[in-house]
Amino acid sequence: MIPLAHFMLVSAILFCIGLYAVLAKKNAIMILIGIEFMLNAAILNFVAFSKHDKIALGGQVFALFAIVLAAATVAVTLAIILNVYKYYRTIDPTKIDQLRD
């Protein structure tokens, strides 16, 4: 039986690693990976708390929904990144700062 606080500790550290990737990386794919880390940390919390909710299992059901949403997001984001690369020849988000053609 692992205490809830340990799950929350792991998830807090993973969330901060993802936050660092989002803030410091200069590569759109690494930023996407950072967002995936943060999502996974949130899913771990959902799942850990749903252990105490056997009848409704809200945490596990919404963890499933979050996984599905993350997969859909990744598909769309990768398509967007490929298009941005085709247009600007870079995927550094700090260099893509024009809305006009």
Binding site: I2, F7, I29, L44, K51, A63, I67, V68, A71, A75
Partner: peptide, 30 residues
């Protein structure tokens, strides 16, 4: 290993979903 941690929270189905969708889908897509 996150899927492994889900098993410790007694969420075996979520762990398998994580393997199938993230490891099998998202990563292969990337």
């Amino acid at each position: 290993s996150m899927a492994g941690l889900f098993v410790f929270a007694l969420a075996d189905f979520v762990a398998v979903t994580q393997l199938v969708i993230y490891v099998g889908g998202v990563l292969v897509l990337m």
